[in-house]
Design a protein around this nucleic acid. Structure first.
Length: 566
RNA sequence: GGCGAGGUAGCUCAGCCGGUUAGAGCGCAGGCUUCAUAAGCCUGAAGUCGCGGGUUCGAGUCCCGCCCUCGCUACCA
């Protein structure tokens, strides 16, 4: 039987994440997983932080923390942010804290080497004796040998745009200490992507059906793939397998190589926790698995070409990606989200004013699925008030409060003689009813959100036409039948909305007096006249309360980061 | 400089391989309704599809040129 292995791009543990990341990756992944679960699919959702690399060592040193402590801090910070938005994974680990990661990453290295997909090359790099390290291109400054600009970086000259060869820079110096680096020979392993492409992956990519914005990205990718260096002279990372390192000392795996392997090692970790350590193979090495990578567009080449090459190159029967629902970028109204530039919100203040699930819903309605899109506070307030408060939320309160006042707060009875008429009215004549899960399966999340609203409108239209408030005086039994029908509809809304608004859907479920977790209900699909009703007449309802209070724009500076207030 | 994305109603966005009067939601206007979170329902106004050429029987949709916006170019979706 088919099973779904869902991964979300590993956030780098050197800073907070923001709505941009959430919209691009984690929220759609969460909705996808929750939907599949209700559909009865077997699903595993894996994520964690990417915790190695030079950037982290430098920042940790600046902060005066040891590396493990430093990444742990950001790991927890990021996890808290996900928790606030209701984004959940089966496991949220980290590449330096996962007990299985080092060995797993080394195994990839060994297997790729054994199969002839690694090559060792000698190169000259800049070494800073002052800093005691080889300098990544980014950490070299110097005079541009093309235009003479004095503050060129080791990767690019910001003045003339030349791609710099750091070895040719005039007057090179370390961006860290300012000391002059020396040339030093070093040997590194490279992943032979051209060979992997020619042996298999090239053909696989061309025959695979990708999301349109993904195909556009990888079209030109194949023609010009270089071998990529997969080791570095680093202090913080997975060591090259000792038996292969030989006389090379201090070589560690380059983060880009070890990070995606985290998907595998985190799965192993989870299965070990569950007491079934071999179970990971069923997820990663079984052809019935559908591997789905959620990520941002900048990660497309990596997950469509490089990581599949690594998986296949081990010759260990790893599954290759089934779908890569990459999203575009999500920008803040006045530009991009950026924590470092203060272009984000004080989240404590933000979530004090705005309900996290309402925010979740707004973000889903604006996901950057086909092109970059924009987060706007004003738009968010409008969406919460019109779509959530007035449409979905108000449908529940208008029905349930009315029943509370006039029908003793119990599910009103459906008279058999009205059933057919009302079935027809709500299922056929009050607007088109669609199944949001079909859109979710196709990774069209915004469309799914629109369907939820349309389905909710069906309830409002039905109520408007049947006018139970008027009927109550002339034909109370018929009014009861209409309200019974509306209660059923609210039950459907609770189930349909559960993946999007997990907490609110549960509250709605309880207001209907239903037991248990709505998320444990089977996915309802599209109502069929002969089977769609399930409520017990006379069963007590819960206490009706507004699910989504109306909201307004924040006061000036209310949501600014603390250091910017005032 | 290089690479990428985009410029479609007031706003945010759909419009796949070119084909009848260009769509949605919100906002706005008018009417109806009062059960409800000043919520609901109905109707409506509103766009020279960035600019200029070209291909075509026919282009928002393909080609060329130009203008503008944004992002990446740091191991940040």
């Amino acid at each position: 039987m088919t099973r779904y292995l869902v991964t979300s791009a590993l956030p780098y543990a050197n800073g907070p994440i923001h709505f941009g990341h959430v919209a691009g990756v984690y929220l759609p992944a969460d909705v996808y997983v929750r939907t599949l679960r209700m559909l009865g699919e077997e699903v595993l959702s894996v994520c964690g932080t990417d915790e190695y690399g030079v950037a982290i060592t430098l920042k940790a040193e600046q902060a005066g923390q040891d590396y493990g402590e430093y990444v742990r801090g950001w790991h927890d910070n990021i996890q808290n942010f996900f928790a606030r938005l209701g984004v959940e994974f089966d496991i949220f680990s980290g590449t330096s804290q996962c007990a299985q990661h080092e060995e797993t990453a080394q195994d990839f290295f060994r297997q790729l080497d054994a199969n002839g997909y690694l090559e060792k090359k000698e190169t000259t790099q800049l070494y800073s004796e002052e800093d005691g390290m080889f300098l990544a291109d980014r950490y070299v400054m110097g005079t541009c040998y093309v235009c003479g600009y004095e503050s060129a970086r080791g990767d690019e000259c910001p003045h003339c745009g030349t791609w710099i060869d750091p070895l040719k820079l005039k007057n090179p110096r370390s961006a860290l200490s300012g000391a002059e680096p020396v040339h030093r020979q070093t040997r590194h392993w490279y992943l032979n992507l051209p060979k992997l492409r020619d042996d298999f992956i090239g053909g696989w990519i061309q025959n695979h059906e990708w999301k349109p914005n993904v195909s556009a990205f990888i079209q030109n990718l194949l023609e010009d793939v270089p071998s990529r260096s997969i080791t570095r002279d680093l202090k913080w990372g997975v060591p090259v397998p000792p038996e292969l390192a030989g006389d090379e000392e201090g070589k560690r795996l380059y983060v880009w190589f070890d990070a995606p392997i985290g998907y595998v090692s985190f799965t192993k970790e989870l299965m070990a926790q569950r007491g079934t350590p071999d179970e990971w193979r069923r997820w990663w090495q079984d052809e019935d698995t559908r591997l789905v990578h959620f990520l941002g567009k900048d990660n497309i080449p990596f997950h469509c070409l490089v990581f599949p090459s690594m998986l296949w190159g081990t010759q260990q029967d790893y599954v290759l990606p089934w779908q890569v629902p990459a999203n575009e970028f999500y920008n803040l109204e006045s530009g991009k989200f950026s924590t470092s530039e203060g272009r984000t919100f004080d989240l404590d203040a933000f979530f004090e004013r705005y309900d996290a699930e309402a925010v979740r819903f707004y973000i889903i309605t604006t996901l950057p699925e086909t092109s970059d899109s924009t987060f706007s506070l004003e738009q968010m307030v409008q969406t919460i008030n019109s779509s959530l408060a007035a449409n979905i939320g108000n449908l529940a309160t208008r029905v349930l409060k009315f029943i509370g006042k006039n029908f003793e707060g119990k599910v009103p009875a459906l008279a058999p003689e009205h059933a057919q008429e009302f079935d027809r009215q709500i299922l056929m004549e009050s607007g088109e009813i669609q199944d949001p899960a079909e859109s979710i399966r196709a990774f069209r999340f915004r469309e799914a959100a629109a369907i939820l609203l349309a389905n909710s409108s069906v309830g409002n239209v039905f109520m408007q036409r049947t006018e139970p408030w008027a009927m109550r005086k002339t034909d109370p039994e018929k009014a009861a039948s209409a309200l019974n029908t509306l209660c059923e509809w609210i039950g459907w809304m609770a189930r349909w909305t559960a993946p999007f608004l997990p907490g609110k859907a549960q509250a709605l479920w309880e207001q209907l007096g239903q037991p248990g977790q709505v998320a444990d209900q089977p996915w309802p699909g599209i109502p069929d006249a002969s089977t769609w009703r399930s409520l017990q007449a006379g069963a007590p309802l819960g206490t009706p309360e507004a699910l989504f209070p109306r909201v307004s724009l924040p006061e000036e500076n209310e949501l600014s980061l603390p250091q910017e207030k005032g």
